[in-house]
Each structure stands twice: as structure tokens, then as C-alpha cells.
């Protein structure tokens, strides 16, 4: 059964929020994001002494009357950013767990809405197998965005995904002009770190959103279990495994999960990449207004 959080009420709550991006991004002209370069906006930024070639119209004559020196008045610049959303469409994200898929889609939709709401460009990249599917192209404006959102609800989560290949093969990744968000559970054998490194190389702000279900965080089953991976082809697939889950095994699982998350976190910290873990058993509103706010990605 399909689960969806995408309705008018959901988007209505996002009206008051905006994306909080780094100021060292270049971006394009015409956006709403303040950047560290000086521009032609009305927001005062600084003074500097006049140099030859400067536009004399920008000399502050009030300061000249006081100091008898020529100073120019500088203003901040506002740019338009490109927001890249990479959504993991592998089976592990929702083939058997509609709630997890709905959470992933909702997070992507929320970030996309905030982008178009702030006059940014959005590209929705659905990672499938070894490539990215970008059916809507670059989305600008809410009208185009809502058309894309209605299609997102019908999306299918199948097979396994190679995050590295998907991200690196994405051909619309510009350099230093926006935010790239990877939404996945990162439970994959592919080297997703290379994908992150690639994005960092492209001087993009990167955010990793890890979606985990309660069953993944704290498995409730035990005894002799034949675990069938949702991404496996058949029962004999090597992804599947037979295991006797005992108390010691559960403790080992907890430890492995903790180390796995810590590894991502450490890796992200080293590269200034944002990292958020989202549990699907908490309300989506709390995810947006608490978890993402705390991560500093929203403001």
C-alpha cells in the first residue's frame, strides 16, 4: 500500500522555512541566497578605498567630507543555487517498507520545495541501478515543481543501486553552485564515499540523509532466521544469509550499526559534509522542523 506525506498541508508548513546554504558558493545571478562576493544589492557590506578604474558613482561622499579620502561603499551579492537531490531508488529503500519510501520521498520533496520557494533551481535525480534518472530536468518555479511531485508519488523502488556510479555519472553537476543531497540508507556495497568525494571535488555543499526504519535500528526477530535481502535476485543470492540470532548476535548488530553510523559521521565531518539520520517511526514534521534545523541545513 502506497504511503505519501505529500499534500497541501505538508507543503503549507514549509512556507516559513528556507534552505541555509554556505555563503562561499558561486551560484547564478538572480537568486535569493546571500553570498560572500560583493554585488549590486541594497544590503551594505563594507568600505574600501577607491582605486583607479572604480565606478566613481559608488564613492561615499559623506566619508570624503570627514576624512578627505575616497571610499567606496560595498554591497553583498544574492545568487541563485542549483539544488541536486539524489534519491536512492533501490529496493532496500521501500520495496517492502512503504513507510521508509514515503519518508525518503517526503524529505526530497521538502528540500525541493524549499529550493523552488527560494528561487533556486532543482534537479531530482533518481538513482537507479548504475545511473541517474532525471525525468523532470532542471525545475524552476513551483508550478513545474508540483508537476514533478505528483510523479514522485508513483515512483518504484527496485533492484540495487550503485551510488558512486549514479552520482559521478550525473551530467548536470555544476561546480560550486549549490547543494547536493543524497537520500539513502547507505546500506550498499557500492563505494558511496567516492560519490561524496566527487561532489566535494565539484565544490558543492553536500548533505547525506540516512533513512532508517525501527526494524533496522533494533531488530525484533530472533532464533534461526533465513534473512532475505530485498535487493536479492533469488533465495540463493549471496546477499541472503542464514543466521541464528541470539542475544550476543543482537548485541553485535547494535555495535555494527553504531560503528557504521559513526563511520559515516566521521567521514562527513572530515569533509564538511552534513549528515542526518532519520528514523521513520518519528513524525515527518519532527524530521523537518527539528532534525534538519538542528543540522543547520534549514533556517
Amino acid at each position: 500500500m502506497k504511503v505519501s506525506f505529500l499534500d497541501d498541508k505538508f507543503f503549507g508548513r514549509l512556507e516559513t522555512l528556507s534552505l541555509n546554504l554556505r555563503s562561499n558558493l558561486a551560484g547564478y545571478f538572480g537568486g535569493k541566497h546571500l553570498v560572500s562576493t560583493y554585488g549590486q544589492t541594497v544590503e551594505f557590506s563594507d568600505y574600501r578605498e577607491y582605486q583607479f578604474g572604480d565606478d566613481i558613482r559608488r564613492i561615499d561622499w559623506n566619508l570624503y567630507s570627514r576624512f578627505e579620502k575616497y571610499f567606496l561603499k560595498l554591497f553583498t551579492d544574492e545568487r541563485q543555487m542549483q539544488i541536486q537531490l539524489f534519491l536512492d531508488c533501490s529496493a532496500s529503500m521501500g520495496e517492502d517498507n512503504p513507510q521508509k519510501a514515503a519518508y525518503a520521498v517526503a524529505c526530497a520533496a521538502a528540500l525541493g520545495y524549499l529550493s523552488v520557494h527560494n528561487m533556486d533551481k532543482v534537479s531530482l535525480n533518481f538513482m537507479k541501478s548504475t545511473g541517474c534518472d532525471n525525468p523532470f530536468g532542471t525545475i524552476i518555479g513551483k508550478n513545474a515543481y508540483f508537476r514533478a511531485v505528483s510523479a514522485m508519488n508513483e515512483m518504484e523502488f527496485v533492484e540495487e543501486v550503485d551510488i558512486e556510479k549514479c552520482v559521478t555519472s550525473c551530467n548536470n553537476t555544476s561546480t560550486g553552485n549549490g547543494l547536493s543531497v543524497i537520500i539513502s540508507d547507505f546500506m550498499t556495497d557500492s563505494n558511496w564515499k567516492k560519490a561524496v568525494d566527487y561532489l566535494c571535488y565539484k565544490k558543492r555543499q553536500v548533505l547525506l540523509m540516512q533513512i532508517l526504519t525501527p526494524d533496522e535500528l533494533d531488530p525484533t526477530y530472533d532464533g534461526r532466521v533465513h534473512l532475505i535481502d530485498s535487493e536479492s535476485v533469488d533465495v540463493a543470492d549471496t546477499k541472503n544469509m542464514k543466521i541464528k540470532i541470539t542475544r550476543s548476535m543482537q548485541l553485535a548488530y547494535e555495535e555494527a550499526l553504531r560503528d557504521f553510523k559513526q563511520d559515516i559521521k566521521t567521514y562527513c565531518n572530515k569533509r564538511g559534509v552534513g549528515y542526518v539520520t532519520i528514523r521513520t517511526d518519528i513524525p515527518i514534521e519532527r524530521v523537518l522542523f527539528s532534525e534538519l534545523l538542528n543540522a543547520g541545513i534549514m533556517g
Binding site: S92, D96, K100, E216, V225, H226, I228, S230, K239
Partner: peptide
């Protein structure tokens, strides 16, 4: 062994 379908066996 009882079969149990889960999202991923990665952590296991």
C-alpha cells in the same frame, strides 16, 4: 531457519 524478508542484510 524461518525466512524473514528485510530491507538489507548489510548490517547483519
Amino acid at each position: 531457519y524461518q525466512q524473514k524478508r528485510i530491507s538489507s542484510t548489510f548490517i547483519w
